[in-house]
Design a protein around this nucleic acid. Structure first.
Lengths: 340, 340
DNA sequence: TTGAAAGCGCTAACAT
DNA sequence: ATGTTAGCGCTTTCAA
């Protein structure tokens, strides 16, 4: 019984109502050229028979699927799941459905996701690249379907993208620490090979230069930022004497790792040193963590990305735009005023 | 140019190769009744022309979309995003794509999601209900498409579901605390109206009865479990003298709120009281939080749910199964041994 | 206002 | 081994 379910089609309805199925189609799509009476009859019968339009057939002839693809490294990531959530909600309100593809940071899966979504006739794609490198080799797809890139600052790309202004973010952070009196600020966890991190590091350098501070960076050899990476890095650093009054971490995860190492080393935050993160992941707001950090406004990013994509769908000639979202400082308890 | 992109179809390929388009279809679908030579030629031309199969057309005639819908309250939730992540990965490996629908805990959006996915010809649906109540009124859809329910224990439903054994979870927790010497264990944060929470509370009561302890519960008047809810509840509780040696929270979020209240009240964990959570959300593993808790094996749940659904797709007569996943204890540092 | 018919890209049954 | 053709459910001319 369950599998023998032939669904009710427009034809079935037409037969019952006693009109041609074109008429039913018109009634359903709210065409004006139809009498109020037949429309009512058709509506009633549709409800009665439990008719549900087949959007696949519809997409076929309309050449629009009303599907947007979301390609991202992982759904299970504070930053990304927040983005995904906002994207879904906003797209749905605009009448689109979301198809999600995990890439697990694998370029191979990124390619595959594009092909799959194009095959599914997705009307557009929102893409969170797993890194700058991954962007290469994907350009061919960008000609086939409107794509908006989210997250990575791809300055050189001519494609639409939305990103947080990472450079601005670290500048804001350094300036804040400076105002608190900090003059020896370590920047911890910079990763080469990540555009995002490169820009954050750049902001740190710029701010130091302008404020007349020594830029001092402890790079990360790890593939990705994580609590463990921060912990490992900080442990090493704490072996020597504490030469800085503040540590600015390239990401919140790293900062939390630094906290752990500090706790173990008997160093207090912010009494012995101030700690600043970047991202404002949900962890950072927790009691006991309560990390001062630079916030990436995910909601705003998601909305900007979706709107940009929808705009391109509505007006195909729309030129590709770049949009930098302004990050902001979230003051919690991990930084304190000092006299130097 | 961008919007004038007529995609390459099977017919275009056929024309170039000089065969009928049925032949191309056969070649592509790996039919054996075709000469190796033409297959090679077709493959080559397809690649050359950048042909990508239109899965919509395919779904239309095959009457299988290879799409699975995932209906859940929110993508942005530690437990759920982890589930979504695993579900996506496993489905993709099985050749399915995932369409995600947020319901924001609104029954109206749950209904809408079902209709939408059925309209999209989804082959099956994985459903995380926002609550027991929400289950009502949805039964009609269950007849139209195979559905597997994840998360909620819906004992009465005849439909397929996978859930963690919540009752067992709290029992494990109480037994552990008992072994550590605790005899006065408060159960904090029980919410009426949630099946999950009802079962957890039940486990607590059972264990207390069997171990000869007094069951003592501090119910939560809040709609959902959250850090704030736990904080508020605990603050109130700490106003009086600490009458318990351990607090078992109905969820990790609550437990973290309790931590915050304890910190403010100058109570130390686990020195002044032991604290146990339930869920093992990613927060709980953080340094400074390090909460002993009951783990819900999300990966296992996701896999069981996906497998159950795929099995029903393969063998439509498969009877609907219920599967309870065994939770397990994660020992961290928030509970300690006591002499009573 | 309504009906008839073509066609979206593809698969599969039937011919050859 | 390959071609012909019907048809999946729907929208949209074109006619009536």
């Amino acid at each position: 019984m369950e599998s023998a379910k032939k669904r009710v089609t427009i034809k079935d309805v037409a037969r019952v109502v006693g009109v041609s199925y074109a008429t039913v189609s018109r009634a359903l799509s709210g065409s004006p050229e139809i009498s109020e009476e037949t429309r009512q009859r058709i509506d009633a019968i549709c409800r009665e028979m439990g008719y549900m339009p087949n959007s696949i057939a519809r997409a076929m002839v309309m050449r629009r699927s009303q599907i947007i693809g979301l390609i991202m490294p992982s759904i299970n990531n504070f930053f990304m799941s927040e983005l995904a959530d906002c994207i879904e909600t906003r797209l749905r309100r605009a009448g689109y459905d979301l198809m999600v593809c995990n890439t697990s940071y694998e370029p191979r899966l990124e390619r595959q996701a594009f092909e799959l979504l194009i095959g599914r006739q997705a009307d557009g794609i929102i893409f969170l690249p797993s890194g700058v490198e991954s962007y290469k080799g994907l350009e061919a797809y960008f000609a086939q379907v409107p794509v908006v890139i989210l997250g990575e600052n791809l300055r050189e790309t001519p494609d639409s993208y939305v990103s947080v202004d990472n450079t601005r973010g670290t500048r804001i952070g350094v300036e804040y620490l400076y105002e608190l009196g900090h003059r020896r600020i370590l920047y911890l966890g910079n990763r080469k090979g990540s555009m995002t991190h490169g820009l954050r590091a750049e902001g740190y350098r710029q701010a130091c230069r302008e404020l007349g501070l020594d830029a001092d960076m402890l790079d990360s050899p790890f593939e990705r930022s994580s609590v463990d990476a921060g912990y490992t890095l900080a442990r090493e650093y704490f072996c020597e004497n504490l030469r800085h009054s503040a540590i600015f971490c390239a990401s919140d995860s790293l900062a939390i790792g630094v906290m752990k190492a500090a706790d173990e080393a008997g160093l207090r935050i912010p009494e012995d040193f101030s700690l600043m993160g970047f991202d404002n992941i949900s962890f950072s707001a927790l009691p006991r963590i309560d990390l001062t950090t630079i916030n990436q406004p995910e909601r705003e990013m998601a909305e900007a990305g979706v709107d940009m994509l929808l705009e391109r769908l509505r007006v195909p000639e729309t030129e590709k735009k770049h949009r930098l979202i302004e990050p902001d400082l979230v003051i919690r308890s991990s930084c304190r005023k000092v006299e130097e």
